[in-house]
Simulated scan of single mutants.
Amino acid sequence: MTARRQQTRLARQVGELAFAVPAVVGHRLARMALAGPMPGARDRREFSGMVNEKGVAFANAWTAMGWQMLMSQQRLAFALCRAAWMPWLGGGGLALHRHWQNTAQQVMAAGIAPVHRKAVANARRLGRSR
C-alpha cells in the first residue's frame, strides 16, 4: 500500500473512531443508568462483554504493532546493508527518513485497526438495539 493511501486510510479510521466511541459510551452509560443497581441478564452480558473486549482489543493492538515493528526493522536492516554494500544505488538519508516516516504510520495503523474494528462494530450493534 502506498504511503498516501496509508495516510488516507489511517485518517478515515481515526475519523470513524471519533464518531463511534462517543456513541458507544453514551449508549452504555444510559443503559447503566436505566439498569440501576440490579441489571437484568441482558445488561449483565453487555457490561461483562464490554470489560472483556477492551482487554482483547488492547492485546490485539499491541500484538499487531509489535509485528509491524519487527517487519519494519527487518526492512530497515536490509536497506542499511544494501546502502553499505552498494552505495551507488542510492538509498541514503532521504530514503531512511521516508522509511521511518512510513514505519510510524504503519505501526499506528496496525494498532488502531483492532480498536477501530471493535468500536465501529459496537456502534452499529448498539445503534440497532432498543
Rank of each mutant, 00 (worst) to 15 (best):
N60G: 11
L34I: 02
G93P: 02
G26C: 03
V24K: 02
T103N: 12
R75Y: 03
A109T: 13
A123F: 02
Q74R: 10
L29M: 08
R124F: 05
H116V: 01
R31K: 05
M86H: 14
T103C: 11
A23M: 07
T63N: 08
R42N: 09
L126K: 00
F19E: 14
F78N: 10
P37M: 01
N60E: 15
Q73T: 10
C81H: 15
R98K: 11
Q101W: 10
V115M: 07
P22F: 06
L17Q: 02
W62F: 09
R128T: 14
A79L: 06
L76W: 02
G127K: 01
A83N: 08
G55W: 08
A3T: 12
N52D: 12
Q6M: 05
R82H: 08
A121C: 02
W62G: 08
H27L: 06
R4L: 10
G90R: 01
G90D: 01
R45V: 09
R82V: 00
G92C: 00
L89M: 09
A113M: 05
L10T: 12
Q106K: 10
G111M: 06
G92H: 03
F58A: 09
L34C: 07
A18F: 02
M108E: 15
V115L: 11
G90Q: 00
G111N: 05
R42Q: 09
R117I: 03
F58S: 07
Q13A: 06
V120S: 02
R98W: 11
G40V: 00
R9G: 04
W100L: 12
T103S: 11
W62E: 09
R117F: 06
H97A: 12
A41V: 12
W85F: 10
M86Y: 12
M86P: 00
